[in-house]
Structure formats: C-alpha cells, structure tokens
Amino acid sequence: MAKDLDKKLAVGQGLDRYASAVGLIGALLSTLGFILAFVLAAPVNGASVDGVEMIGGQMVSNQLLFSQKIFYFHMPAAVTSMVALAFTAWFGIRFLTTRDARYDLRAKLATEIALLFIIMTMFSGEMWERFEWGVWWTWEPRLTTYFILMLLVFAYFILRTAVDEPERRATYASVFGIITFIDVPICFMITRLIPSSVHPVVFRTDSGLSPDMLVPLLLSMFGMFCIAFALYRLRLRTETMAQEVDAIKREIDE
C-alpha cells in the first residue's frame, strides 16, 4: 500500500517524462488557438448601425467588435485557474485523510498555478472592461466573485507563511484550500443565478458559439490546461529537489 503511494507520488519519472512534451503541445495548441481567433473566428456584433452593408457575402448591420478577441484567452485562463483550484481542494482532502506531506506540497503548487492563471484572467479582463464598459472596475457579480476568489488565493499563501509548524501549516492550508474552492462553483454559476450579469453564459447546451469561434476557444483552453500541467510538474520537480537539498544539509550538519 505504502509502496503504491510512493510510486504514485514519485517525481522525476512517469508523468515528468511527458511534462515537457505536454508543455510543448500546450504552447502549440494555444498559439494555434490565438492565430485562429484572429483568422478564423468572425468578429461578434455590437451596436446597430444606420444601414446595412455586404461584407464577405454577409449582410452586416452592426458594429464589429474586435475587442471580443480577448475572450479567446480570457475565458480559457479563467477555467484553467478554476481547474487548478479543484486540484488544490482535492490534494487538501488527500492530505487531511492521509497526513502525507507530499499532498500538501502538491496543493500549494496547484494554488500557485491557479494564481498565475487568475492574474492572467484579471489582466485580460481589465483590458476588455476598460474598452467595452469604460471603467477599470465594476462590482458586477462574476467580477466580484472572481475577485473574492483571487483574495482567497492570496490569503492561502499568507496563511502558509504565517504558520511555522509544518504539520499545522499543512492542515490549515488544506482546510483553507477546500474553503477557497467553494467559491469556484459560485463564480462559475453566478451568470446563471443572476442573469442580469453582463458576462455571457458560455457553457450550456447551445453555447451560442459558432464552430469558427468554438474551435479557437477550445484549442486555447486545452493548450492552457497542458501548459498548466507542465508548469505544475516543473515546480513539483524543483520543490522535491529543494526538499532533498534540505535533507542533505541536515545530514551534513549532523
């Protein structure tokens, strides 16, 4: 049993063998998604104009919104951050049930990755907001719940640095990681719970996205999942090595 667990949590083999390749695939997919977002996806319609024009064989009677191109990376980054936080919660639960410190390390690194993608989401969202809504910030339901999520992730790291004793730190962080994850479904569902929200509901039976829009979006999303996985494994390898360094230092001191 213990051997199985050791094998599962081993670093430097298995999953790590594929991490670089997955990272490369992620870079390729997201680059392809980026290119197709500009080349393949048609611009969405904005406000109506005072007439109709024929563009590319189609009757156009609305403004074409170029700013919507931000969406093709903005939403995948947000979804990736939420998936990473699901792993934080999962590893937190695993730590609380097994008391194995390796799960705590994994939870910390998953949260690190979540923070990176939260920052990316915030950056891109800010640019959209400034241009389309004319403000840098508004307390719109999706924005507010995502902002709370970002604060919870900051608080997670503050909590980790505030507690010195490793076992206690891991326990508190695991519980806090699970609590942080509770905001993820709230944030995801808020556009359904409060339909007045200006954020669209993208994931539904009929997403309203035509294939030319869906393809770049999905490519970017799977690309980001791959990048997140590769970065997570890279950080895990480094942190495991750092623990080895500490162990050797202790051995030399003795």
Binding site: S67, M120, S124
Partner: peptide, 27 residues
C-alpha cells in the same frame, strides 16, 4: 455605414494587444 461598422476596430486594438501581451508577460 462601413465607417460605423468598423468604428471600434482601431480604438480597441491597443487594448486587445495589451491584454495578450500582459497575459504572455505573466506567463
């Protein structure tokens, strides 16, 4: 009419470029 249709393309370009640049910079 075309002027109205394309009215937001050029003004929004810096924001689109900034959004992608900031995301890549963070990464």
């Amino acid at each position: 009419i075309l002027e109205q249709i394309y009215a937001t393309i050029i003004p929004s370009a810096p924001y689109v470029i900034a959004a992608y640049a900031l995301m890549w910079a963070a990464l």
